[in-house]
Write a protein that binds this DNA or RNA. Structure first.
Lengths: 238, 238
DNA sequence: CGAATAGTGTCTATAAGACAATATGCC
DNA sequence: GGCATATTGTCTTATAGACACTATTCG
């Protein structure tokens, strides 16, 4: 069987395709998004998400294109990369039809040298798509909030928030990440039971020492995919 | 602020864009997918999903394009249409880079005249992506199974399966739809509690009369979006 | 009445949540 | 010891599930 798909395809002159990445991290208990300077006059006061075209010479897949555009803003490899949705219509770009595939990237908070052009912007805890002054150009605010919405939703019933943490972490740090994402922390009891009894994390044998009782350090047992739980945290639902 | 997105975009001559729809329905307790005849030599023995290009003259949005291609195979409007995922790489089409946005469409089983070219194919209950002879051309089998996977997953914790039923239905029919999707039916008790106590369905005041005790007919209370439940059916997890 | 399907009552199991109690470090 | 944070114990609550029981129709 031929592998040529038999449709007549949209001529490229009428559709603009791009891949947009929403890079997210936790810093100081707050969710932050990485954006670069706008490269166009008329949008000087706004930042833009890492995004760009598909380059057949470099990208074998959409995900590779997303990684390449993300790498332009940060050396750090994302700990998680997931397609969020595709937006395509004839009104998001004044030139006509435009289509973008949106990815969410979760990054560990690192102190490494960053591209000086790139800037991490803090999203106020509990803030939603409609109650904040937009700071990204074009429809990038909308794209960003769709990704954040997805992350917040999945935080309630999957292991996804683990990928915002360093490779070893304490139970309290899981709890703090959930508070940062959801605006409210589920009970420590519930988090311990969920993550420990399911076996998705395991003790490293080490402790994090501080000014008081040291906390056990854990790591992800097998991080091929996010594990789903049967229920959501009810304390964090509106 | 300008609405022109500032990336250099992929020239259309190197990327082929299409929208593919996976039309699903329940018939006789089995999940079926609608496909049409392949239009290309080399794939005569296979069917293809409704799909095609974006036509800027007709389509304002990706979803409109999906509806248009679906309408080529069936007059029936879908009761639900949802984007599943976007697949793009340089190996699914032998001509090079190709990108498709996949939609899932849920249709009510009707006896209306169908396009004689279109054919509903039955998916064996409990069947998965890898244990069946492929009957769709290109990578359409893969696209179909991704949509079915999504539907089966959401059936466990949302009201999505209601959109596979006629506009009025009985509790037993909800249960049968879940059995068809999941291979096993959750307890009637659990289904009644979930759907009735949440208020997502309401009695029409009518009964479906048969050879024995008539069943109360319900309808969806407000069908703007799928309602999420706090838990999944545990009896249907592997 | 009997068959068949619709619907209810009630007890159990599981995991979230509340909250008190205990443990272990630093000073 | 005293403080602070980590961890555990235990009771409550919500909802899925098991399963017996009752209800309503047809023939």
């Amino acid at each position: 069987m031929s592998t040529e798909l038999n449709q007549t395809h949209t001529p490229l002159s009428t559709t603009l395709i791009s891949v947009d990445v929403v890079p997210l991290r936790l810093a100081g208990g707050q969710l932050q998004v990485l954006a670069g300077p706008a490269r166009e006059s008329g949008a000087e006061n706004y930042a833009v998400l890492p995004s760009g075209r598909i380059d057949p010479a470099h990208d074998q897949t959409l995900e590779e294109a997303a990684r390449r555009h993300l790498a332009a803003l940060t050396q750090t490899a994302p700990r998680w990369l997931e397609q969020v949705e595709t937006i395509g219509n004839n009104h998001r770009d004044s030139r006509g039809w435009s289509l973008t595939v949106v990815y969410m990237a979760l990054l560990e908070h690192e102190q490494d040298a960053q591209n000086p052009q790139a800037q991490w912007r803090t999203l106020t805890p509990g803030q939603g798509a409609h109650d904040s002054a937009p700071f990204l150009a074009y429809d990038h605010n909308q794209l960003m909030w769709r990704a954040v919405e997805r992350l917040r939703s999945k935080a309630q019933y999957t292991t996804l928030p683990l990928h915002l943490l360093p490779s070893t972490f304490t139970i309290t740090e899981i709890r703090n990440s959930l508070r940062s994402l959801l605006g409210q922390a589920p009970p420590l009891r519930s988090i311990r039971n969920r993550f420990l009894e399911s076996g998705v994390i395991e003790s490293t044998g080490h402790k994090r020492r501080g000014h008081n009782r040291p906390a056990t350090l854990y790591r992800i047992s097998s991080e091929k995919k996010t594990r789903l739980f049967n229920r959501i945290y009810e304390s964090t639902c509106k």
